[in-house]
Structures are given as structure tokens and as C-alpha cells.
Amino acid sequence: MRSWDKCMTVVDSYLKKHSEALVKDVGIEAACALTGKSKATLGRYYSTHDEHADRFMPIDAVAALEEAASYPHVTAALAELRGNSLNLEGRRRNSDDKGGVNSDVIALSQRFAMLMAEYNQSIEDGIITVAEAKRLLQETVALQRVLVDMKLHLEEESV
């Protein structure tokens, strides 16, 4: 396998995982209604089986689902693959508290503690299972959201 092929396999897997997270964020039934796709078709978009390796969610389906989702999973993944990040100005905050940076620091420490607790539990037996990795990913995304909120508050205060 050439190094480019191996790289594409990692990228493909990354995009499929984020496509699955997007569908699960919205809910499978709602995702079917929003995209006009069946459960089986949506499942093929994030399946890692060889027969579905070259199938990816169409961009119009991604757009429809991300409009309904709590987070733009696929768009964020694409940005991350390019070394960029998103500035999610109009999205829902982690809390209704308007406390600014001080509240963000508290939320950040709480989220980081939750991530470390999840990691500690996951690594206890020396193996991180797929389910444990998914929970770690969810905590990491939640931590990332807090950091984005903090960034936005800092930008507001520096104006």
C-alpha cells in the first residue's frame, strides 16, 4: 500500500466516524426525514466495511443534518483535516450563563476533569475499546466547545 493510500484510509475513517456522530446527534429517524434517505443508506455512509469504503454522505445531506445538529461534526472534521478550526458564532452555548471568561474557566476545568475521569476509566484494563474511544471523543468535543465559548468571550472582551 502506498503512503497516500494509507493516508486516505485514515482520512476516510475519520470522515466516516464524524458522519456517524452527525447522524446520531440528530437521531436516525430525524436524519432519514431530513435527508430523504433510508436508515440503511445512512448506515452505508459511515460503514467501515470494505463494500462501503468508497461511499460518503452527499454534501446536501451533510448540510441538512448539520442544520439540525448540536454541532457541525463533518464540517469540523473537514476543517481539522486541513489544520483549521471553526468559529461557531451563532451556535448554542454550553450554558445560559453569561458570566464570561470566569464561567468559561470553571466549565473548562469541569469538562477537562470529566475527560480525565473517562480516560482513567477507559485505560484501567490497559485497552481502550471502541465504545470507550467514542465516549472519549464525545468528551473531547464537549471540551472543544467550551474552548470555543471561551475564545468568543475573550474576543468580545477585547473589542
Rank of each mutant, 00 (worst) to 15 (best):
L147V: 00
E157V: 07
G100C: 09
C32K: 08
C32F: 01
L137M: 10
A133D: 09
E155Q: 11
E157N: 14
M116E: 14
D60V: 03
K17A: 13
S19T: 15
L108V: 01
F112C: 02
S13I: 12
S47Y: 00
S47A: 11
K17F: 10
D104A: 13
E20R: 13
Q121R: 13
I28N: 03
F112M: 10
L86G: 02
P58H: 12
K17N: 14
N120L: 03
E20F: 00
V130I: 04
L65K: 00
V159L: 06
L154I: 10
D25L: 05
T140Q: 11
H52L: 01
L81C: 14
E20Q: 15
L136C: 07
W4I: 14
S3F: 14
E118V: 05
T75R: 06
L78K: 05
M1G: 15
V11T: 07
A68M: 12
L22V: 01
I59H: 10
G126A: 08
K24R: 15
F112V: 09
L15S: 05
Q110T: 05
A113N: 12
L137Y: 11
E29L: 07
T140V: 05
R93I: 01
S19W: 02
M150D: 01
K39C: 02
A133T: 03
S85E: 04
L65M: 14
E118H: 09
G126K: 11
L42P: 03
K151S: 04
N84A: 07
E156W: 11
T140W: 02
N94G: 14
R93Q: 09
S70K: 12
M1H: 11
I128L: 06
E157C: 10
D25R: 11
C32L: 00
R93C: 12
K24H: 12
D149T: 01
L136S: 08
E20N: 01
A64L: 09
L86Q: 04
E29F: 04
C32G: 00
L147N: 03
E157G: 15
K6G: 09
T48E: 15
T129L: 08
G100E: 09
S47H: 07
V148N: 10
K16C: 09
K151M: 06
H52I: 01
K17L: 13
V74K: 02
L143E: 00
A40G: 10
Q121L: 03
N84Y: 03
R2P: 15
N102C: 07
D125I: 05
E51F: 10
P58N: 09
R44M: 11
N84P: 05
L108M: 04
G90A: 13
D50H: 11
Y45E: 05
A117W: 02
H18I: 04
D12M: 11
H153G: 01
L143Y: 06
A31L: 01
L86A: 03
T140I: 05
R92I: 07
G100M: 04
A107Y: 08
C32S: 09
L86V: 05
I128S: 12
I128E: 04
V159M: 06
R55P: 02
L147I: 01
M57K: 02
M150F: 03
I128W: 07
Y14A: 13
V23D: 00
G83T: 07
K151G: 00
A33F: 06
G83Q: 07
Q144C: 08
G100Q: 09
E155V: 15
V74D: 04
E29K: 14
V11A: 15
I123T: 10
R44S: 15
F56A: 12
